[in-house]
Simulated assay, not measured.
Amino acid sequence: MKAVIFDMDGVLIDSEALHLYDFRVFLNKHNQSFTSDELSEFVGLDKNIFIERLQKMWKPVNQLPSIEEITEGCKYPSDSFQDILFPHVRFILSHLKKNNIKIAIASSSPYDIIYKMLSVNNITSYFDVIVSRNDVQAKKPSPDIYYEALKRLELSPHDCIVIEDSSVGIQAAVNAGLNVIALKENRFSVDQSKANWIVNDLIEAWIKISEVFNLTCSD
């Protein structure tokens, strides 16, 4: 039995652009000016790491908003899950199931957000394992979330492929000894060089998975 482990944000749903848009609005409100490269550094970060990095970059530091204000200003765009589901999600999930490939999520988002996304898009039944930020202490790029996914899948790293998009997510998977497919990101300056393969979409991801697992693409 083999498995594919999906990140959620930027892989199953196109939430990164909304995150950065809301982040830009928040920064403009507080007269903060970040370059595109600086904004890209926040892609895929756990909430606590996100806030820590923002605190270090805020100028002047004595005008830094409270944690509550930052959290509210950059809150998750959770009302649009159907609108931001990536094309071909159901295609790849159904093809994995047809080939008896286990499917997991390993996401830095909290459980309630993950389950809401799956429920709204009616894809919960595809997933055998769901691991969230609630399940581990150390967040990506720590490999802990992928170690936990492997433990629940009862599989070794060489039997699994991860689909990621952010540099911290890719690093987490690599740190866990996993092979990684990166969904190419053209809008932000994201370092995906540590991924084993870079693809344009989830159909290309399925083709690559078929090659690695020696499956027939048409199955």
Rank of each mutant, 00 (worst) to 15 (best):
E204N: 09
L64C: 07
E204Q: 12
N179P: 01
D135K: 08
K47M: 04
V4P: 03
Q82G: 11
V212Y: 01
L155V: 13
R187H: 15
A173H: 00
E41L: 13
V61W: 02
V89G: 02
S166M: 06
K151Q: 15
W197R: 15
N196W: 00
V136S: 06
P60A: 12
N100L: 03
A176I: 00
G44F: 05
E72G: 00
Q137S: 13
N99T: 03
A138L: 13
P87M: 01
K194W: 03
F6P: 07
N186W: 06
V212S: 00
K184N: 11
C74K: 02
S94M: 05
I203K: 10
H95S: 09
E164Y: 03
E204D: 11
M1K: 13
L183R: 11
S40Q: 08
H19T: 06
V131G: 01
I113Y: 08
S166H: 10
I51Y: 09
L118I: 10
D79S: 12
R133Y: 00
D112I: 06
S66W: 05
L93E: 03
K194V: 04
D112G: 02
Y146L: 12
V162N: 05
A173T: 01
K29V: 03
D7P: 05
P143E: 14
E69L: 00
V11F: 04
K140N: 10
I101T: 13
W58R: 08
